[in-house]
Amino acid sequence: MKLKILPPTLRGDKRYLAFETISQIPLPRDDLIFMIWESCLKFHGECETSKFRLWVTRSWDLNSNNSKKDHFQLKGILQCNRGDEEKVRGALCLINSYKGKKLVFHTLGLAGTIKSATQKFIKPSP
């Protein structure tokens, strides 16, 4: 049986970080999540990271099927606790390698809803 969802007043506040990654090899979603958690755990420790409530809500693979590219780009939205955005951002920018290849995380921006994060930073309307 599924638990009934909490009323909005009892739910914690969230913020959505839009990010992009540029890597030398393609980056699967599972590894992306692992790297975000690993970086936060290493930089802030277990106790502090437990407050962040991290969740990768969506990701967009921006590469076509061309395997001869020298770098691969991916965009995504990361949900985190309101008030801890700076700490998450700080931890994300310390990620620099994946399976021995170079990788970089750039935070594109911060929004209050998934919709606005997508519209503003992922797929900006002309």
């Binding site: 700076e86 700490k87 951002r89 700080g90 920018c93 990788l103 970089v104 750039h106 935070t107």
Partner: peptide, 15 residues
């Protein structure tokens, strides 16, 4: 791959 946005750098140093 070593460059970060100014906002990311600011967030890190605030930590």
């Amino acid at each position: 791959y070593d460059l970060r946005t100014p906002q990311d750098i600011m967030a890190l140093y605030r930590c």
